[in-house]
Design a protein around this nucleic acid. Sequence first.
DNA 1: AAGTCTCGCAACCGCACATAC
DNA 2: TGTATGTGCGGTTGCGAGACT
Length: 312
Amino acid sequence: MGRPPCCVKVGIKKGPWTPEEDITLVSYIQEHGPGNWRSVPTNTGLLRCSKSCRLRWTNYLRPGIKRGNFTPHEEGMIVHLQALLGNKWAAIASYLPQRTDNDIKNYWNTHLKKKLRKFQSALEPSPMAATDEILSDSFNVGRKSLDFGEVTDTGGGSGNVKLNQSCSSSSYASSTENISRLLQGWMRSSPKINGDSIGSSSSAAANCDLISHGDDQLESILSFGNTNNNVTMLMEKSSSKGTLQDSGNGEKLNPERKQKAGHQKNPNININDNDNDNDNPPLSFLEKWLLDESAAGQVEDMNQMMELSSIF
DNA sequence: AAGTCTCGCAACCGCACATAC
DNA sequence: TGTATGTGCGGTTGCGAGACT
């Protein structure tokens, strides 16, 4: 017996959300909090299915969502994490609390994947390599940093880069941003809504406690791209608290799915709060590695980049 | 100026997983 | 134990805007 649809399709509205629908949804969530999505359409009168309401909230209306340009540092983190975790967008998004998995997924598919592919073909020109493409592209292997968008070296040897992208929010996006902004105060004053907590430095890394690993750990991570996405190697070295378990046979890796009690999105957040109530818990090795400007912000080492991009 | 093409993003779809009964 | 239900996730699609011819 197949799983029934999440909602009766008849009379369900599809397509883009209107500002009025957004306001209705936000007002309801302000009053009742996120969750119990099944009841949202009936209680609000929205002609949307529950999944659509949840998606609209988590991907667009949820407070704290950052839209627009991805910074070079964010790009670097995404590249690293994608090489490390594969297409586990929710897990990757847990490291970028202001970005949604959908945003990251879209950005990867439309920008980063393309650029990494070009980068790889520039480094490993095959007989069939599209030479014209390489020549015409602004990508330059000899440059100090990857050309993610229009990256300009600010000089001074600092390694800082400026990113000039032409991303722009639509006027409608602006209106929903305003809706989100209206919610900021509510989020601050209301009891913690675990699934939507943002800005915490604790994240999925809390699940894979990699603190206190040495250079060999880094070596494992860096060579990850050549291991057919088998996380076992990495996790073998982690402590017993590690909950990322990938048998290398496609078994679900995402720690969120192991922590769905209470129907919380991103349960990784605050997952170790019982151990340490400090608002700024020590960064795990992985987090330190990811947040390290020299590693994630500019990707200086071309050989390292080769390994990361070898998954393509 | 008009038609066509390309690209980016919001939203949808189907499946997987957890839980309640 | 099996079924129903709720939710999360990743892949894909379709539309609109801008670029191009």
